[in-house]
Design a protein around this nucleic acid. Sequence first.
DNA 1: AGACTAGGTGAATCGAATT
DNA 2: GAATTCGATTCACCTAGTC
Lengths: 267, 267
Amino acid sequence: MAFEKQEIGDAVSYCGDALEVLEQLAAGAIDALIVDPPYSSGGMYRGDRMQSTGAKYVQTGTQVVRPDFAGDNRDQRAYGYWCALWLSAALKKARPGAPLCMFTDWRQLPVTTDILQAGGWMWRGVVPWDKTGAVRPALGRFASQCEYVVWGSAGPMSQDRAVGCLPGFYTYRVETKKEHITQKPVNLLLDLVKICPPGGVVADVFMGAGTTGVAAIKSGRKFIGVEIEPRYFDIACRRIENTVRQPDMLPPCEGEQATVLEAAANG
Amino acid sequence: MAFEKQEIGDAVSYCGDALEVLEQLAAGAIDALIVDPPYSSGGMYRGDRMQSTGAKYVQTGTQVVRPDFAGDNRDQRAYGYWCALWLSAALKKARPGAPLCMFTDWRQLPVTTDILQAGGWMWRGVVPWDKTGAVRPALGRFASQCEYVVWGSAGPMSQDRAVGCLPGFYTYRVETKKEHITQKPVNLLLDLVKICPPGGVVADVFMGAGTTGVAAIKSGRKFIGVEIEPRYFDIACRRIENTVRQPDMLPPCEGEQATVLEAAANG
DNA sequence: AGACTAGGTGAATCGAATT
DNA sequence: GAATTCGATTCACCTAGTC
């Protein structure tokens, strides 16, 4: 099968189905998988979830029209089976010990930890992300102001490529200008990509607006991206291209060397 | 069956098994259930989890000797069945709509949301608690610096007794002087008891060192507590007694009236 | 300073089953 | 019976922010 493929700097992006693209990658191609799959959340009842994403995630006030996104209307069991499929496919293309980060909300959190393990990955923890501003308070209840990164690894993780310790909690305000309704802050992803050894390949098979790619490239890592919806694919490619063009590269993180992986390969 | 029973101010404490004490309470006796059950966590492998709590939750350096606590060495399935039992028993003694808060760690979080529902409660969300300082960093990993409050209610929650909106995330440093290895900060519990209408009855059937009771009494609520381990029962009673004695009662929270429940009962 | 952290890794060791 | 393998268990050591 052939997909539209865009190579921009150290980023390779495919417009196609996650599962199908994953099956065409080389084994060991992925040093870290960071994904934000459609949560299939957003309603207590099946009928609520089956709406188009535009109707489901309503924005009050100014109406910003965005294309609907695909894969967000499965019920919870179908969602689980589908995730297990692409997670399993991704595992086969991941370097042994490669880390996996997967966004989810509170409602899908337990399913997510299950399907991560069903897909063959080793579950290692949960990292909350405090969205602060984006809270819808409810009288007499706790606000749901956090989303979650469920993380794990492709089997045992050795510490030999590690360059430091990462926090277990992040606070970043949701960006006001978004091109995708579930778009994550670049700064959040800039922190998360540190789980990938410097110079390694970060993969995201549900790119959306491409924030993971932006963060990977900006931090001197390589990137493989997949997005099925052509309009978001174009948006992602444009954002990655803008990142490649303006080399306001971040300074290497504390103790990070851009060539850790190459050194390991050579030595 | 008879249990040791201590009445201290507005707090009634029982030394005994949670399930057995719950079955002796009157229906509707509980306005809010806030519990910190033994997580049965503490290791990647079954053997690790089966150790005594003293050996499992290691303290480096100076050895502070604390009594082991009971019920922390079930495997995950047994943990689930056991929780479903006492949660179901508690539901029968809870006022309709009463909120439930249940502490857990990342490893037991998915089980906890399952068994909360298995016990008949309605799952409503997850509230992370950032322990900040109490982090054991690990090279190349995300630290696990959060624990979680899984919360829900005894059926539909009406908003008529609600006095305000609660945050969906808390940051409190672990207290340095603890009498129980899993003791929670008083300030955290002072925030959480706000889920209970002012003047209502907060119950905690795994008191440990009694922090929930301290927070309930300090905020002008009533309290029912249960603890199976006599040494922790004594510690809890002493801490509650100290709280009752020094009436440095907190000012009513924003919009809180100390007599909301009484007013409802009278009118 | 030094203790503290609802740990995790990996090497060494022990034990039972198999060759 | 001695050697080997595999699994389970034990133990030293690592991490960094805060008190």
